[in-house]
Design a binder for these strands. Structure first.
Lengths: 134, 134
DNA sequence: ATCGTTGCAAATGGTTTGCAGTTTA
DNA sequence: TAAACTGCAAACCATTTGCAACGAT
């Protein structure tokens, strides 16, 4: 059984109750921005402010526990799934959906590496499908 | 010979000197955010402010003359190339490079449409390769 | 002449920072 | 106990808005 406390400590961070709660919240939400986490934890931690949430989320990103994603509504989203994967982005609800399709990723990665883009060192490939959920 | 004035009028907008200058600037810059345009036009139009630049760029987007792109440095970028194409994004200089490769686009589009993502109506596919220019 | 546009300043909203007090390891 | 963390308020910065003066058609 996975202990979130140990996950956080293993990343070199102190496992405060707030951090544990924020990580649990992210697990539940999947993709979320700071205010969604504040909202989600308001009852349990009424003193938690956006400032702290941002600090914690950022430290999680640095520790490799989360990944940042840019959304079209001017907010920074965080993703609990840190492995490379594609996304659908619902432009109506500003909501991400994971596409766990290694084949798609491989298709693009292979194509890119076969082409060898001039004067550019590839670090990551981001496939972002915009549309509407129905 | 293409007249920028006519391009703007053709889009249903008044061809003011500022708009012509802003569009010319975008042509030169390729991908730019508001403050880059202000900077580029400071000498010729010292009274041009970011507010106007934003208004003009936004009206160009609505008119289909430009397209928005989200960058990793919290700024909105605008792209003069309105057709669908992939991008490299230099994470060091926050700079976009076009990848004009219809084959890559087709590869992904075909794959996506063959898979038929559940409960999702695809509107656009955005391929964003992050890395460093060398 | 009319309606859209510019310019300026002030407002907005997401994100960051400074710092005092608190907690984890 | 030391170093890291939280909470609060204030700062920051990209973007937007309101409105009076102005200019393109």
């Amino acid at each position: 059984m996975l202990m979130i406390k140990d996950l956080i400590k293993g990343a070199g961070l102190k496992a405060t109750p707030q951090r544990i709660a924020i990580y649990e919240s992210m697990r539940k939400l999947g993709h979320a921005c700071a205010d969604m986490v504040v909202e989600d934890l308001r009852e349990k931690y009424p003193t938690l402010t956006v400032a702290t949430i941002y600090n914690v989320l950022e430290s999680f990103v640095e520790a490799g526990l989360l990944v940042k994603r840019f959304s079209l509504n001017h907010k920074m989203y965080f993703d609990v799934n840190t492995y490379e994967h594609a996304h659908c982005y619902d432009t109506v609800h500003n909501h991400f959906i994971d596409i766990d399709d290694p084949e798609l990723l491989k298709l693009v990665t292979d194509y890119i590496s076969s082409k060898e883009i001039e004067h550019f060192e590839v670090e990551g490939i981001d496939i972002h499908i915009t549309g509407k959920q129905k």
